[in-house]
Amino acid sequence: MTSEQTPGTTYVVVDGENIDATLGASILDGRPAPEQRPRWERLLDFAQRRYAQPTKGLFFLNASNGYLPMSFVQALLAIGYQPIPLSGGPGEKVVDIGIQRTLEAIASRSGDVLLASHDADFLPQVDTLLDGTRRVGLFAFREFVSSQYTPLRERGLEVFDLEDDVKAFNVVLPRVRIISLSDFDPLRYL
């Protein structure tokens, strides 16, 4: 966005299943406890501060089993997300398809996009969004972002680490990753 453009909207599109699965399987080696889950409102807050414009949070849920976790849906609504519970046939990746369609729809409008996912299934849509007229980023655990996104970083794709940049957690996660010496805090390991 150039300085002559007026602020628009930042769409925060959340693939909660992907973030939860990565957190549980790759970082915690088990189901996250409530205190180990992201504080989803911090993604909206980060987007608002980073891009200095209103945010629209879209949180995709798989409701194919006919179950809607109402307490979670109510919490999402209370913090400013629009829950999007999708259902489909057995084995159908309803959340991925819903997000792909949403990113395609955003491409025909103005607005910046922050996608919370590590999944390369969105690569074609993210590539299209990087048209030079908008800011596009990923919210993720940096070390688990699909390497297929690497060439898009040269075209402006930003990657914001959920723990380090967004501060989406109230606890320190047991991650093993490369740490810049300037960011190294030995007290974290003592």
Results as ranks from 00 to 15, higher is better:
residue 87 S to L: 10
residue 88 G to H: 08
residue 88 G to R: 06
residue 88 G to Q: 06
residue 88 G to D: 09
residue 89 G to R: 13
residue 89 G to P: 07
residue 90 P to L: 11
residue 90 P to H: 13
residue 90 P to C: 10
residue 91 G to H: 07
residue 91 G to S: 06
residue 91 G to I: 00
residue 92 E to K: 10
residue 92 E to H: 10
residue 92 E to S: 09
residue 93 K to G: 01
residue 93 K to H: 09
residue 93 K to M: 05
residue 93 K to D: 11
residue 93 K to N: 11
residue 94 V to M: 04
residue 94 V to C: 00
residue 94 V to L: 00
residue 95 V to D: 02
residue 95 V to P: 03
residue 95 V to N: 04
residue 95 V to L: 02
residue 95 V to M: 01
residue 96 D to I: 01
residue 96 D to L: 06
residue 97 I to R: 15
residue 97 I to K: 15
residue 97 I to Y: 14
residue 98 G to C: 02
residue 100 Q to K: 09
residue 101 R to P: 02
residue 101 R to F: 14
residue 101 R to M: 15
residue 102 T to H: 12
residue 102 T to N: 08
residue 103 L to K: 03
residue 103 L to C: 06
residue 103 L to S: 08
residue 104 E to W: 12
residue 105 A to N: 13
residue 105 A to S: 15
residue 105 A to H: 11
residue 105 A to R: 12
residue 105 A to W: 10
residue 106 I to W: 00
residue 106 I to D: 03
residue 106 I to T: 05
residue 106 I to R: 06
residue 107 A to F: 08
residue 107 A to L: 03
residue 109 R to W: 13
residue 109 R to I: 08
residue 109 R to C: 10
residue 109 R to T: 14
residue 109 R to S: 14
residue 110 S to V: 06
residue 110 S to F: 11
residue 111 G to N: 04
residue 111 G to H: 05
residue 111 G to K: 01
residue 111 G to R: 06
residue 112 D to R: 03
residue 112 D to E: 10
residue 114 L to S: 06
residue 114 L to V: 07
residue 114 L to E: 05
residue 116 A to H: 01
residue 116 A to Q: 04
residue 117 S to Y: 07
residue 117 S to V: 07
residue 118 H to N: 04
residue 118 H to V: 02
residue 120 A to F: 07
residue 120 A to W: 07
residue 121 D to A: 14
residue 121 D to E: 12
residue 121 D to Q: 12
residue 122 F to N: 01
residue 124 P to L: 10
residue 124 P to D: 14
residue 124 P to M: 11
residue 125 Q to Y: 07
residue 125 Q to D: 10
residue 125 Q to T: 04
residue 125 Q to M: 06
residue 125 Q to W: 08
residue 126 V to P: 00
residue 127 D to I: 02
residue 127 D to F: 05
residue 127 D to L: 05
residue 129 L to K: 05
residue 129 L to Y: 13
residue 129 L to V: 09
residue 130 L to H: 12
residue 130 L to T: 11
residue 131 D to W: 07
residue 132 G to V: 10
residue 132 G to C: 10
residue 132 G to P: 02
residue 133 T to E: 15
residue 133 T to W: 09
residue 134 R to H: 01
residue 134 R to P: 06
residue 135 R to P: 03
residue 136 V to H: 00
residue 136 V to N: 00
residue 137 G to L: 00
residue 137 G to A: 08
residue 137 G to H: 04
residue 137 G to M: 05
residue 137 G to D: 08
residue 137 G to T: 07
residue 138 L to K: 02
residue 138 L to A: 00
residue 139 F to W: 04
residue 139 F to K: 03
residue 140 A to C: 02
residue 142 R to I: 01
residue 144 F to A: 02
residue 144 F to C: 03
residue 145 V to G: 00
residue 146 S to D: 02
residue 146 S to T: 09
residue 147 S to H: 15
residue 147 S to T: 15
residue 147 S to C: 10
residue 147 S to K: 15
residue 148 Q to Y: 14
residue 149 Y to C: 03
residue 149 Y to A: 04
residue 152 L to F: 07
residue 154 E to K: 12
